[in-house]
Amino acid sequence: MRRTALRPELAAAAGALLLAVAVSACGSTGPSASALDSSFLKTVHQGNLAEIAAGKDAQRKATGACTQKVGEVLVRDHTALDAGAEKLAAQLHITLPKGPTTAQQQQLAQIDEHAGTPAYDAQWLAAEAAGHQDTLTLIDHEITAGRDPKVTAAARQARPVVARHLSLLRSCLASASPSASPGVSSSSPGRNQ
């Protein structure tokens, strides 16, 4: 399913948010990073950009106050965190992509087809929750396998922010549709694709 294949990239967006928070707390003057660390920074940056766009869309197009509020939180947090991610990437001489991936843009467009309806909220919340769960996996991998201590420290500091976002998303899902929240965890449709 097309929507499912796009979830990991959306999850990366959440990771970008957390990374930016960690980056702000960890000044770095190192000249370079490993391929894994570089890939992580690029992925979280694109994720941050996608989360900012998705959050702005939810503020305008969601029907539920909970969804709109989570959108506001994502915009605020990811904007602040991306500034830190950009700073760390610059210190490590890593060139970041200019925008979200094509897949991230396509996923948002697919959800936008339901703008102004309860279906929009349900799809947006489910996609964001699955993405944040995937981001936690990405962050955990960076924490255990990353080589640059500044990047792994940033991932450690970002993790609680992504986890908090996931909790907010799941709460909105549960209040919108009590039967929707159990399927949002790692067993979400298409998550393994």
Rank of each mutant, 00 (worst) to 15 (best):
S167M: 10
K98L: 08
E142Y: 00
L41H: 06
D82W: 03
A145R: 09
R156D: 05
S177Q: 13
D82K: 02
Q104N: 10
L173A: 15
G47A: 05
K150E: 15
A129M: 07
G183P: 02
T101C: 03
L88W: 05
L96F: 07
G27L: 04
R164W: 07
T152R: 13
A126Y: 07
D134N: 13
A13I: 03
V161P: 00
P182L: 12
M1L: 13
Q106R: 11
I111D: 00
I111P: 03
S38P: 01
T135H: 09
L36Q: 09
Q107S: 10
D134E: 06
P182M: 08
R2I: 11
L10A: 01
R2S: 14
A174E: 04
A80E: 11
A33T: 02
T101M: 00
L138V: 12
S177H: 13
I52L: 04
A25G: 05
Q91D: 15
K98F: 04
A158S: 09
A158G: 15
A119L: 13
E86N: 06
D57K: 10
V161F: 02
N192G: 06
T152G: 00
L92F: 03
V162W: 02
Q46Y: 01
A119F: 04
G116A: 08
Q68E: 03
G47E: 00
T137A: 15
L10Y: 10
V70K: 00
R170Y: 08
V70C: 01
K61I: 02
K87A: 13
A54I: 03
T63P: 00
S186A: 15
V21H: 06
A174F: 01
Q193D: 14
K42L: 07
Q193N: 08
D148G: 02
T79V: 06
Q68I: 06
D112V: 01
Q68V: 07
S167L: 13
V73G: 01
K56C: 03
S32M: 03
A158P: 02
L166S: 02
D82T: 04
S171H: 10
A54L: 11
S177C: 08
L168G: 05
A13L: 12
P182K: 13
E113V: 12
A122M: 12
T144C: 08
V21R: 08
L108F: 04
A20H: 05
E86I: 09
Q59E: 10
Q91H: 06
G116R: 09
H141I: 14
A163S: 12
Q133C: 14
V184F: 04
V70M: 07
I139L: 14
A154L: 04
A12N: 12
A14I: 02
A90Q: 14
L19R: 00
H132F: 12
S186C: 13
P160V: 15
H45D: 07
Q106C: 04
R60D: 08
P178D: 04
A127S: 15
E72C: 01
W124A: 06
Q193S: 15
A180E: 10
A103Q: 14
L41R: 02
S167W: 07
E113D: 11
A13V: 06
V23C: 14
P160T: 09
A153I: 03
G15M: 04
K56G: 00
G55H: 02
G84M: 05
L6Y: 15
S34V: 05
G27F: 08
P31K: 14
S39F: 01
Q104L: 05
A53V: 13
I94K: 05
T144E: 13
G47I: 03
Q110I: 11
A174N: 11
R156N: 11
P160R: 10
